[in-house]
Design a protein around this nucleic acid. Structure first.
Lengths: 214, 214
DNA sequence: AGCTCATGTGAACGGCTTTTACATCAAGCC
DNA sequence: GGCTTGATGTAAAAGCCGTTCACATGAGCT
């Protein structure tokens, strides 16, 4: 399946690109990971795709719209990664919850461009309905897992699932944001981020009344 | 006390500004809070100070150096705010630790420009020794508090203080980053961030073996 | 008064964003 | 096949920003 360029040899193209929208998104991902969300440039993405600086405006309203599209796509993949790790609580809720946490950090580490666009690009989440919904759906995976977990506890000591979800999200995001990128630009850690998160979540859950054995 | 402008009336100035360095930092703080770390512009800071676009280069190597100076100053104030809240563990370590957490979020809320420059401007912390040291000193306040807290537990169940400090830092930063700014641009919360953090820390500490009563 | 150095100016260069008028081409229709 | 049309690309231009450079100003010292 020709991914672009209507049957011409690789590297060539005619007047039209054939898949500029996708090419721009890929270029944006590379640039974001390389120079941060602020360093990414519409013009450079256009150069990477081999088109003029004005061409991207046929596919995105402006630079921010491209960033928002990257973030939206990122939230979709994030949701899928989290849902796969949670796996509806199998084989066992506490274990699946740990897998969910690991998947969170793995996504931040392996898809730093998406994660950056999603959480550190300064996009006004409120203004873009689709973006907000994508982010909401990803959070609902975590929230659902929290509901299942809370359901394990006897009613009188059952904490609000929303609160549990927010706590774990903040923890995971804090670790990802402060220590979680491969570059280690911000701070060295005495242990891998995954272990740091696992220890924190286990301690936190124990405090909530979950037995240490699960 | 004339804050600038050698005795001229307010709003006027001669060829020299008199306090351009400080004026640029103040302008940067205003712009960062208004348009984010990426929207802040060297040229606009210069306009706000009433000087030409080239003048700032007499005081900062480049735009990033001004941002780094803002961040460095922010870390110093941050350290002072955290140390004052911790107050060497008085009146009582667990209570002082909660105060420390509240001070963290209060700083993020009341000084969003500093907090943004410190944690969300994409500054390469590693490259600037002074910046790194300022950030390190702020973290040491948290670390010291964690040491004191851990000292309360009997040796066999005593967790590593560094780990406790990292956990609480990640939690506080996660909450500040996701929900902590006044604008609420990212997500609404069913409770104030301070309460969210307090509940998380209390639960976490309980799991570590701290009695609920302190 | 005169010197000097820190500090500010204006002009210039290159890069980025965005808009506008125009070019190209694939596809459908006669 | 020729024509029209709409999507997609281009070049050029205006405006902003970062940065540098040669030059101007003036505060403080001698």
């Amino acid at each position: 399946m020709s991914w672009s360029r209507h049957g011409r040899g690789p590297g060539e193209r005619g007047y039209h690109h054939g898949n500029l929208r996708e090419a721009l998104i890929r270029a944006a991902l590379d640039l974001i990971v390389e120079k941060g969300p602020g360093g990414f440039t519409f013009a450079e993405a256009a150069r990477a795709a081999g088109v003029s600086a004005a061409a991207p405006y046929r596919h995105f309203r402006d630079r921010e719209a491209l960033m928002a599209d990257v973030a939206r796509q990122g939230f979709q993949r994030f949701e899928a990664a989290l849902a796969a790790a949670w796996n509806e609580g199998r084989p066992e809720p506490l274990r699946a919850f740990e897998d969910l946490g690991k998947a969170y950090l793995r996504f931040a580490r392996e898809e730093p461009a998406y994660y950056t666009a999603m959480f550190e690009s300064g996009l006004p989440l409120v203004l873009d309905g689709e973006l907000r919904q994508a982010s909401e759906r990803a959070f609902q995976v975590l929230r659902g897992a929290a509901e299942t977990l809370c359901g394990l506890l006897p009613r009188p000591q059952r904490p609000p699932a929303l609160m549990l979800a927010l706590h774990v999200w903040a923890l995971a995001h804090g670790i990802a944001s402060l220590f979680g990128r491969g570059d280690g630009a911000r701070r060295a850690l005495p242990m891998p981020p995954e272990e740091l998160l696992e220890a924190a979540v286990l301690g936190y859950l124990r405090g909530l009344g979950f037995g240490a054995q699960g």
